[in-house]
Amino acid sequence: MKIKFTVNGRPETVDTDPMRRLLDVLRDDFGFLGVKEGCGEGECGACSVLVNGEIVFSCITPVGTVEGSEILTIEGYRNTERYRAIEAAMEEAGGVQCGFCTPGFVLAAEALLRKNPHPSEDEIREGISGNLCRCTGYSGIVEGIKKAAESEGVW
């Protein structure tokens, strides 16, 4: 089946099995290796990407269901001003250790902040609750998102 969508701002068409995992298409066909596989069943969030601005697990998303959608991975997001705000805040707050979960958290933060630019701590914790981190205990990540939200004029 031919499937059309936009990835990181570029219109693309793939001709593939529509049940293929979006994760595999992004990694193997497009080389977007910032999308990670941590569990393969929608539990850890390392494979998170944005589909039409909403955070989804690419490991359990059949590529055929994103027909006509806009997909954003860390590779597209990292060229934005918002990314730079999150990057600086995550680094400063100690939100990064092994890094395997980090691109997923960055996109979860973007999905949260674009809807809710001034989230409470509870809303931040809820917003990232689909992403697991085993290194930081989440303190640094939550604080990083708080700090990023304080960036003037970004959100």
Binding site: M19, R20, R21, D28, E37, T61, P62
Partner: peptide
């Protein structure tokens, strides 16, 4: 959405759920 079926029919990493 596939959130249940993609897990139920998943194979190992890199393979297409069937």
């Amino acid at each position: 959405g596939g959130t249940d079926l993609m897990v139920r029919y998943r194979k190992t990493a890199g393979l297409v759920p069937d």
